[in-house]
Write a protein that binds this DNA or RNA. Sequence first.
DNA 1: AAAAAAAGTGTATTTTAAACACTTAACTTT
DNA 2: AAAGTTAAGTGTTTAAAATACACTTTTTTT
Lengths: 230, 230
Amino acid sequence: MILSTYNKEDKVLLAVDCIIFGFLKDELKILLVQRDFEPEKGKWSLIGGFLKKEENLDKAAIRILNHLTGLNNIYMEQVYTFSKVDRDPAERTISVAYYALIDIATHDEKILKQNPIQWFNLKDAPKLIFDHNRMVEKAIARLRRRALSKPIGFELLPEKFTMRQLQKLYEAILDSKLDKRNFINKFNSFDILIKLDEKDMTSSKKGAYLFKFDQEKYNRKVEDGFNFKI
Amino acid sequence: MILSTYNKEDKVLLAVDCIIFGFLKDELKILLVQRDFEPEKGKWSLIGGFLKKEENLDKAAIRILNHLTGLNNIYMEQVYTFSKVDRDPAERTISVAYYALIDIATHDEKILKQNPIQWFNLKDAPKLIFDHNRMVEKAIARLRRRALSKPIGFELLPEKFTMRQLQKLYEAILDSKLDKRNFINKFNSFDILIKLDEKDMTSSKKGAYLFKFDQEKYNRKVEDGFNFKI
DNA sequence: AAAAAAAGTGTATTTTAAACACTTAACTTT
DNA sequence: AAAGTTAAGTGTTTAAAATACACTTTTTTT
């Protein structure tokens, strides 16, 4: 009897589309898939799928990401729900956009084994199906806000990284040049990085010191009211 | 043939729940409804309804708000989509939360005519059904962020207001005391208020000058790159 | 005439952000 | 082996923004 309460209401398909950001060689990238079913077969698309009855949206996003890339334990966050009536010409579909952050260097072998998916530089990504370009825009805006208030380096960089890489990451996300000294001074003032004795020798003769995030220290600081703010 | 593409996927009910904020007498308030159907009949709830096939979510939110309050032309914004599997015990329902901002003084006659709905001070609102309390929390967080980056006074205050009211509004939203002189100096530096010759005499013997937002000027400034930041 | 109650107003100090350029280390070339 | 090349590394000065802070004005009430 309770189960008949909402009987007369319309039901819809609920999709999840993933905006997967990666960072490699000073470039912010996005992972796209070539659609292998109609409509829009062959066109580039976000990685997506449909919500199942027995899972919530976060779980669906994780499942969909994992299914198409093999990746696990990836940072994901809900962005926005898109609901234009004719956004998918095949059938009325509402789509919840999630974004994910991936360190490409660490994960790429897994991903590249998979077939019709490919990293694109954000700046020269192709036109996408449906409203996926709008989704990407929203996700970038969200990523930008997040970068200003939380250290995204945890997710987008390899475990060990140079200050230059960290700066380039922020420059890519914020789409603006930063001053080397000011950036380093500010980041050091947060006191959440560990300087290693190791150097990265790939990008200069002198070599650049490698750093790690001190996740524990960061967590403790956040609990004590620390407010990361670039 | 195209229309059969997604045939095997699960469909769900998609609800819209509205977190309706109002401001009156220095207090931030929220509009709630006493549910008149099962499950949870008689309990307090957010104002909500179901998405229909022929409308998008923004339209649904507007319709639902209008239907239960008679209000039109209200500022609304999508907050988050809630999808816990058993969030509604009657049936699998996903709910998209929207928040709305209302100047109670201007709109209250309309609202109060309606039946089982009522304003509560945010601080002593009752326990709500399902996950509605979490929705309210998310919406407050969003409102707070918005208050820091956009002049919410446009929506939450009457057309004419005193500086004190404006300050109290920000204090209520940010849940913290602000310094009178610093607040006024900062707000004046934005140069988006018009000082009227009229005074509000209701709260003091001396009377307090009334102000209006200069919407046009604000819009022009935003176009020119102005960044409101409290 | 004194008391009360809210409105209104400006400056000094501290903190944060921004601008700015040379030295070091290690390899490469001649 | 000296000079050149390339990216790494490092502090100080200046400007701007945020914060702290207290008395005067107006008008009504007693």
